[in-house]
Nucleic acid binder design. Sequence first.
DNA 1: CATGAATGAGAGTTCATTCAT
DNA 2: GATGAATGAACTCTCATTCAT
Lengths: 194, 194, 194, 194
Amino acid sequence: MGDKSIQKRKYILETARKVFMEKGFKRVTMKDIVEACDISRGGLYLYFESTDQIFLEVLKMESQEADDVFSDSITEDATAADILILFLKEQKKELLRKNNTLTQATYEFYFEKELPKKDNILRRQFDSAVKIIEKLIEAGVENDEFFCDDCKEAARNIMFVLEGLRICAQTIGITSEVVDREILYILKSLGVED
Amino acid sequence: MGDKSIQKRKYILETARKVFMEKGFKRVTMKDIVEACDISRGGLYLYFESTDQIFLEVLKMESQEADDVFSDSITEDATAADILILFLKEQKKELLRKNNTLTQATYEFYFEKELPKKDNILRRQFDSAVKIIEKLIEAGVENDEFFCDDCKEAARNIMFVLEGLRICAQTIGITSEVVDREILYILKSLGVED
Amino acid sequence: MGDKSIQKRKYILETARKVFMEKGFKRVTMKDIVEACDISRGGLYLYFESTDQIFLEVLKMESQEADDVFSDSITEDATAADILILFLKEQKKELLRKNNTLTQATYEFYFEKELPKKDNILRRQFDSAVKIIEKLIEAGVENDEFFCDDCKEAARNIMFVLEGLRICAQTIGITSEVVDREILYILKSLGVED
Amino acid sequence: MGDKSIQKRKYILETARKVFMEKGFKRVTMKDIVEACDISRGGLYLYFESTDQIFLEVLKMESQEADDVFSDSITEDATAADILILFLKEQKKELLRKNNTLTQATYEFYFEKELPKKDNILRRQFDSAVKIIEKLIEAGVENDEFFCDDCKEAARNIMFVLEGLRICAQTIGITSEVVDREILYILKSLGVED
DNA sequence: CATGAATGAGAGTTCATTCAT
DNA sequence: GATGAATGAACTCTCATTCAT
């Protein structure tokens, strides 16, 4: 596969990503992607053999970029609290974005395929996020920014709240204020006065 | 519609409920329901016109029963903390049940139809649960069982954590221990020492 | 499946039979059969799930009728030689018929699927024909119509010659005279002077 | 067309031959041949325009080599009977070989294309084989090895039996013993005592 | 000459929905 | 009311064939 092919492959994945963001996972057919990419039916099959495969690849792309969210948040002089707040604000932005997330498609995908619960991308992302938040809280505790007995558990709780917000955003809808309140609640439970 | 019809309608809904629990929402076809009910294709259409409609009715049934969870928890001499703990344990049991919940189907349904976020069954259930928990916490605060600044927010937080656990149970999988730790975390943040 | 369904099933098989006679096996698609029957795409799938299945059923029908060829040949006063000659003439007629045989389709079918050689319809038909011819020759030998050392082998040889003629008729083409000569040769080798 | 081209053409034909032996005719696609030859899709089209053409060319190659079977059989001191027996044994070997013959592919090819019956390679091969066998029998008759009224007809009969065996080998399966018995039957009908 | 990405026609299959009985 | 055969739109997937490089 030449350079051009790699380009096209990437182009297809990026286009498919938009389609998944708009329609979720299940409603997307190979035809949808073919049309969005403006290529031929057979052409798509040269690169991918199913929507499943395409979605998994999109997810991989996504997950690589996800790691950057933290990296972006970390600046030299920022305190742990600053970084955590920045991260939570990032998450807020993302979970309030309408039709601009793969959240729904991802959930649908994991529902449809009854994938191994132990080893899947989503799980790895979750666990890795927990670990990073944990480190952040530990750093904050050392700096006396945070107060916390069990940093690991606090990190996990934050992630569950975020997941709860995320799914509610997709189903029952939530406002910016609701998210803000949750963020404040989280921070308060870490002993941050604001 | 005669008595017999009402009976049959109910029979269909109950049978369909089982099908949705097994397969989620999207993967269920009219054919599946027809076969599960052992009625004729045309027969089903006499009562319902789509899987959507059937699922909504199933959800209505469900939501009427859901209110009983709390009622069951409340006994005369129970303290607020007792009731809250009982409720959380109920939730734990439910969210760990495999293929015995409409959770997945419900999420799928709400993903698929981009329903009004403001007024839907799920939303009403959520809000009503928040209110009940809030009342419970307030009662607990008055009894000095709980310590809490903002009972409404605490209640909301609990619900988001539960939602987070619920979705995670369906996608990345969670263990009984994970749920226990979250329950403890919630109780601790209410000032309960255990 | 009601009476009507059985009728329709039969109708489809008979129509499909004609299609197979015209086009062989491989070139026939479900669409061809749908069009020949003038039914809907989905309609055909109610009765059969593949051209394979349809062809096998056609073959079964055929094989039931094939047994009648002999029965038809046998009349009360006919001698063994008469019956054998009648049978060979029947075979001649059949193998010279253009596009009015399933021969080609049958061969194609057995080529395509690499079916068990031991137990298949074709094999059963062949063996049963050998047995009947053998009986016939034995009867002829007893009547001093035929002369033959090994009736079983003679019967088998007749069948192989017929198979050879059949396949040649489909590939390189043969004339009526060629078949006649082979029939005479067979009869002569059984000691029949004509 | 340069030397190199001729070489490549031949290489393609020989490779394609193997593919046809494995899969018959109809199941072979241009893609199969391209992959077996490890050349480019477009490249194949520079030499041949269809599987039909390729198969015909393979058949031509084959037919040139087929003539050698007899030449090989003929040694100086061999009697007619020896040569005939050798030839029949050759044929036996060939028709019992699994997946190592173009037989099936050839039949499929002639089924698919409804080619002129009068003038085709298969026909020429058949006629030429008949002629050679005829000559052989005539020689045998002169040497008093064989007894035969109509040598041409005997030769033709042999070929039809062989064709019958060949097709049966591909469809209903035959054993070595069955072929042996047919060979003995043929020889006996030529008056050879063995 | 040679490449291999791209095309698009067409085969197979499923399912919501209708309608004569 | 109830039945279930029938319909046809929509999807998946494959392959011969072309054509820019």
